[in-house]
Each structure stands twice: as structure tokens, then as C-alpha cells.
Simulated scan of single mutants.
Amino acid sequence: MHGSERKDGMHSTPEEDPRPKLWPRVLGSMAIVGFTVGMIIGRLQQPAPLELEQIEELPTGLALWFNEEPKIQGDNVDGAVVLRFVAAGQPWNGQLRIDNKVARWKLERGEKGLVLTLLAARPLHGDWRTAEVDGRWRLEVSLREE
């Protein structure tokens, strides 16, 4: 076997090329540009986030106004009405009168969005429906005693 020592002024391994290696830089630059363009296109195609804009008190319940149609999960839990929806919004609370009796409501942030809880001293039952009004979505929650 031959070693890598000099023999007659020559090496057994070729000398290193003194020119810079541009191919890895070109591939890296193309990857960064492609990633950036993909992120820009993704942000442009992303829909506007669902946002709670306003809450109105009605004689029989509440009306919640959204900029897009909300997906609602609702339950009647131990006499309280609990609605969950994936939306952005500020925590609010208040009270309203149903049949001259006070019911309290509270809107708070949950794990995946907002949680609306309606509670009174007596068991409540709630019905809700959504409708599009003038380009906005209205969620109307109607309450009654059980």
C-alpha cells in the first residue's frame, strides 16, 4: 500500500480546489426564498379570524354578533346554559331579566376559544340559532325556565 507521503514531489491524493463551493449556497438561498414565498402565499390565503364583535341583551336572552359564521357547541349543564365557540374576543359579564328574575351571564376565554355561561337561581334551558344579518352573523340565545 502506498501512503500519502511525497514521492518525487507528488501526492497520492489530489490537491484541494481553491475555488469557493457555490452550489451549497445556491441551494440554501433557493430554499430560503421558496420558504418565504410559501409563507407569504399562505398568509394571503388564510381567512380572517372569527371574532366576537358585540353582545346585546334581549328580553329573552342574548344576541352575539360575529364577523364570520361561528361553530357552536352548547350544553345545558345542571341548570346552566354553556356555549363554546372558537373565536377571539374580550371577556365580558353582565345580567339580564327573564320573567322578572335575574340571570347572570359570563363570557370568558377557554382553551380553544370563548365560553359563554348563563346561570340563574333556578334551572335554565337555552335554545340558540345563527343567522346572517347585513354581512355579519348573529347568534341569538333564547332562555326559559325549566
Rank of each mutant, 00 (worst) to 15 (best):
31 A>F: 08
50 L>T: 08
144 R>A: 08
96 L>Q: 08
72 I>G: 02
145 E>T: 11
66 F>I: 01
61 G>F: 00
57 E>H: 06
16 E>V: 12
117 T>L: 07
141 V>K: 01
84 R>C: 00
127 D>L: 12
9 G>R: 03
13 T>F: 11
123 P>R: 07
78 D>E: 15
6 R>E: 14
19 R>Y: 06
100 N>Y: 02
46 Q>K: 13
35 F>Y: 11
24 P>T: 06
80 A>L: 03
69 E>G: 09
82 V>E: 04
132 E>N: 11
21 K>F: 09
145 E>D: 10
134 D>L: 04
112 K>D: 15
122 R>N: 10
97 R>S: 14
18 P>S: 06
58 L>W: 06
21 K>H: 10
119 L>M: 13
8 D>W: 08
8 D>L: 09
75 D>K: 14
103 A>I: 09
26 V>F: 15
34 G>D: 02
6 R>C: 09
137 W>G: 03
7 K>I: 15
19 R>Q: 08
58 L>K: 12
46 Q>H: 12
38 G>R: 00
60 T>I: 04
109 R>P: 00
26 V>E: 06
54 Q>Y: 11
120 A>K: 06
127 D>P: 00
135 G>D: 05
27 L>G: 07
13 T>C: 09
83 L>Q: 05
131 A>E: 10
14 P>R: 11
94 G>R: 05
30 M>S: 13
93 N>C: 01
106 K>C: 06
52 L>N: 07
144 R>M: 04
114 L>P: 00
102 V>K: 13
117 T>I: 01
94 G>P: 08
135 G>E: 05
64 L>A: 08
64 L>I: 05
73 Q>D: 10
66 F>T: 04
55 I>L: 10
146 E>W: 15
113 G>C: 02
90 Q>A: 12
7 K>P: 01
65 W>R: 15
40 I>Y: 10
32 I>L: 15
84 R>G: 07
54 Q>K: 13
70 P>D: 04
33 V>H: 08
8 D>S: 10
3 G>M: 03
20 P>I: 01
14 P>L: 05
56 E>C: 03
47 P>F: 03
143 L>C: 05
138 R>W: 00
31 A>S: 12
14 P>Y: 06
20 P>H: 04
44 L>K: 10
51 E>T: 14
7 K>V: 14
49 P>M: 06
86 V>T: 15
60 T>C: 00
29 S>T: 13
60 T>W: 12
98 I>Y: 01
115 V>D: 00
132 E>R: 15
28 G>P: 09
75 D>A: 13
112 K>S: 13
27 L>S: 07
14 P>S: 07
10 M>Q: 14
49 P>S: 08
113 G>Y: 05
98 I>D: 01
96 L>W: 03
85 F>R: 02
27 L>R: 11
8 D>M: 07
82 V>M: 04
28 G>V: 03
5 E>H: 15
